[in-house]
Amino acid sequence: MSIDDKVRSIVKEFKAYVPGKSKEEIARNYGIDPERIIKLGSNENPWGCSPKIEEKLINEVSNLHQYPQPINPELMDEISKFTKIPVENIIVGGDGADEVIDNIMRILIDEGDEVIIPIPTFTQYAISAKIHGANIKWAKFDEENGFKLDVESVLNNITEKTKAIFLCTPNNPTGNVIPTEDIKKIVESTDALVMIDHAYIEYSKEEYDLTSWALKYDNVLILRTFSKVFGLAGQRVGYGVTSKKVVDYMMRIKPIFSLTRASQVSAITALLDKEFFEKCLKEGIESREEIYNGLKKFKQLEVYPTEANYMLVKVKNGMNSSEFCEALLKKGVIVRDCYSFEGLEPYYFRVSIGTSEENERFLKIMSEIVE
């Protein structure tokens, strides 16, 4: 009997996750100087992380032979101050928000339970739900209506078997927020856990931040991350904000030491360096407007409004998204081909914010390809 006969059938159905391409991969495949490559495909902070983190990490090296604290009180306290949420309502994950997603599926899902996911959206929701035995009920962000959430497509899928509903706002990859009244309608229509993914909420207007709802509703869990504006995508720190009861259940099955000493120190320092945070946020929003206004000038593209640090673009010059993204790669520009997102036609790509210099070069290269 081979390993193929032992692997679960559900695993065999999965396609491998398609991450954004790295500079090293493009340099190797196309013979391009890595210093000339513009990476705008993974929704990262182009200004990096707080410069104060380097010194803190160096000081932490002598402690790396010791296990980290399962719950770091300083980190919990700083997250609490940042979110204005009590420590007892916060759970931190060591693989970004992905760990929180996976852990909530582990405590909720029995074989045959249902999870509602509007598409197109972040692909990890479906992967985690399916591997734990859930049946996926697909709702939709309406393409013909600017990818506005079709609320009825969510409500009509709610049954007694519904255990969780995922709502990404701002949504990845479309960049738009879900109106608060629509989320309220969903939350109050069910006792299923509504997962509101706020990975990019810092880039949005304050009125769209629903983190406080975790204290208002027992069936709400807010997902947050350090991977975006804090510039710590490489340290994999995410957290959930929810009821104390849900936190208690998740702590029973959470990997105890998933958050490393290095990631804890990095996250604490990032939260304390408020000046760098505000700088990145301000320049990130300016960069977003710069790219958006630049792309809007091309008649062969349709650019969607966004409240995140990226935007969705539809190609209308006769090329599909893979052909278009390949042309960009040959010129040293990495964007995200969205062909792998369920619910999108093969004409979309996603572009992240860059520095002013990167944006200028990107738009110049875009003009060469589009026209």
Rank of each mutant, 00 (worst) to 15 (best):
N135A: 08
L210M: 15
E357L: 10
K296G: 01
K184C: 09
I268K: 04
L75V: 02
I37Y: 00
M1V: 07
Y310D: 06
T211H: 10
F276K: 13
S22E: 06
G284I: 14
A126R: 12
D77V: 01
V303F: 14
I183E: 12
H65C: 04
C49P: 00
I268D: 02
D142V: 13
L221G: 04
P118Q: 13
Q235Y: 15
R361N: 13
E371D: 12
N219D: 04
K81Y: 08
N176R: 14
V237G: 05
R236H: 06
T211C: 11
K130A: 14
T169G: 03
F362G: 03
V7I: 15
A270F: 02
S2T: 01
F324E: 05
V370H: 04
M366C: 09
K274L: 03
I107A: 05
E152Y: 14
N156Y: 11
T123F: 04
E99I: 04
K205I: 09
P68V: 13
K52Y: 14
W138A: 10
E44H: 13
Q69K: 15
C280W: 07
N29L: 15
S212F: 05
K296Q: 09
I119C: 14
A214C: 14
E181I: 10
P73L: 02
I71W: 12
G318Q: 01
M319D: 07
V177Q: 02
I119N: 13
R28F: 09
G112W: 02
I285C: 04
